[in-house]
Simulated scan of single mutants.
Amino acid sequence: MRTSTRVAGVLTGVTLALGGAALTAPVAHADVTACINQVERELQGGEAPSYVRTACATGQSGDHAGCVTALTKGGGVTNGTAVTACKVAP
């Protein structure tokens, strides 16, 4: 086997191995906790009520509008904070 063919084969193998590792690496993203923390900053009253947790879980599932509605209708959360919190949920 020629050296150039061997080098090409090794480089291909390394590229595939590294590419596969990149595809399987966990994706860093915001979650329910980030959403809850955003709301708690506004409420400034300790732990968020259960409706906040439920709303943020709704946002994480992809229902942004449902998350915002649940936070603003639940009481005490302004629309701006709800929008920001729900954006970080998914």
Rank of each mutant, 00 (worst) to 15 (best):
V39G: 01
Q44F: 12
S50W: 07
A89F: 15
R2T: 12
E42T: 15
G45S: 12
L11F: 15
L23E: 05
Q44C: 07
G59R: 07
T81C: 00
A57S: 13
G19Q: 09
G75V: 13
T81Q: 00
A21L: 04
V83K: 03
A70K: 13
G76I: 04
V39F: 00
R53Y: 14
L23Q: 09
I36K: 11
G62F: 05
A82P: 13
A34V: 08
G19L: 04
L16S: 10
Y51L: 00
A21Q: 03
T72Q: 02
T54P: 06
V52E: 01
C67H: 09
T33W: 04
G45F: 07
T24I: 01
V88K: 08
L16H: 11
C86V: 09
C67G: 08
V7C: 07
T84H: 07
D63H: 14
G80I: 02
A8T: 14
L23Y: 15
M1H: 13
A34L: 05
P90H: 15
C35Y: 14
Q38M: 06
M1P: 12
A55S: 10
T72N: 01
V68R: 02
G13I: 03
C35K: 14
V68H: 03
S50E: 04
T15H: 03
C86I: 06
C56D: 03
A30M: 04
T84S: 05
Q60P: 10
A89I: 11
A57K: 11
G13K: 06
T54Q: 07
G59T: 04
P26Y: 00
G74V: 02
L18F: 14
T58N: 08
A55R: 09
A82C: 05
A28V: 10
L23D: 06
V83S: 03
T3R: 14
Q60H: 14
C56L: 04
L71E: 03
A85G: 09
V39P: 02
V32P: 09
L11M: 09
T33L: 02
Q60D: 09
V10E: 01
A22V: 07
L23P: 05
E42P: 10
G66Q: 05
L18P: 11
G80W: 01
A89M: 08
H64Q: 12
E47R: 13
C56R: 12
C67D: 02
C35R: 15
P49L: 02
S50V: 07
Q44H: 12
G75M: 06
G20I: 04
Q44N: 14
G19W: 12
K87R: 10
T24V: 02
A85S: 09
A57L: 08
S61M: 05
E47F: 11
T15W: 04
T33R: 10
N37G: 14
T58I: 04
R53S: 15
G46S: 08
G20E: 04
G80C: 02
G13W: 04
V77A: 01
L16Q: 11
C35H: 15
L11G: 15
G66C: 06
V68W: 01
A28T: 13
G19R: 12
H64G: 08
